[in-house]
Amino acid sequence: MHPETSTGLDSRKLAIWTFIGSECMFFASLIGTYLVYKGKDVAGPRPHDVWLLNGKEVEQMLEIPLVTTGTALLLFSSLFVVLALYGAQKGKRGMLIGWLGATLFCGIFFVGMQVFEFTHFYHRGMGFTTNLFSQTFFTLTGFHGGHVSLGVLWLTTVFILALRGKLPPEKSLNLEIAALYWHFVDVVWIVIFPVVYLIH
């Protein structure tokens, strides 16, 4: 339950939705910038270029299998967090802790995947200022990765509350709000994944 409001809705939930709305416009500007500069580089490396590494032909810059795994885990993490929320709302502590732990694992894997990818690109000679692709790519995916990292921190605090038994059903909104933010970073990646990695 929440205090009476003029809308009849919880103000915290309305606030997170308003925040998510503003974040949509933020990421739209980053995705738009990536798209307008796509293919406009005057020098490589470009995302789908074929590379030579130690005399062996490497198919392309982007690691599609790795990123697909990260994408799948991020999608599954959205499923896990709603199952955790269901557990929190029904007072099923085991379900809450188990699924929330699984969500955190997926989130941490995703962040690790991005750190690996960025390091990999750097070692292949693509730094932040190398060309237009690298700048727009690192800015867009870096900001998204930052949001995922914040989401992991946020869910970790909720996880600690749950472990301490301080997340009873009447306080499940604390998890619901964090989960809404988590789903938002997921839907942003649902757009980024095909736009950056698959469309060429």
Partner: peptide, 28 residues
């Protein structure tokens, strides 16, 4: 997952309106 189908329409409005602006930003 974000429960827009079940929750109040006000939440949908607060989300969808900026989404339309976001799409317009990309198109523009």
């Amino acid at each position: 997952y974000m429960h827009l189908k079940q929750d109040s329409r006000l939440f949908s409005s607060v989300f969808v309106f900026p989404l339309i602006i976001a799409a317009a930003i990309i198109m523009a």
